[in-house]
Amino acid sequence: MNATATFATPVSLEKLPRHAHATVAQIDWTRLSVPEARRLRELGFDEGVDIEMLHRSPFGKGPIACRIGRMTVALRRAVAASVRVLPA
């Protein structure tokens, strides 16, 4: 959207502010357990897909909800931390 976006550095998905759009830059599969990694792939997480932060659970470290494709997905912050995104 603005000129600086092209030069933005990837941030952890967990840190993405509400309503912010981003592109998945890289997923650190090694930080995830095998079933976690599989579920994440099945829910459509992949490098290059668009993502939008929708909600953060009201209770401190609770889960987050984001839009990926046409789907809303809830996941815990620990998992979100292994997804690095490039804010749009």
Binding site: L43, A74, L75, V79
Partner: peptide, 10 residues
């Protein structure tokens, strides 16, 4: 056992 996590489609 290890915590199972929470990941689901809404």
């Amino acid at each position: 056992g290890p915590s199972s996590g929470f990941m689901m489609e809404m």
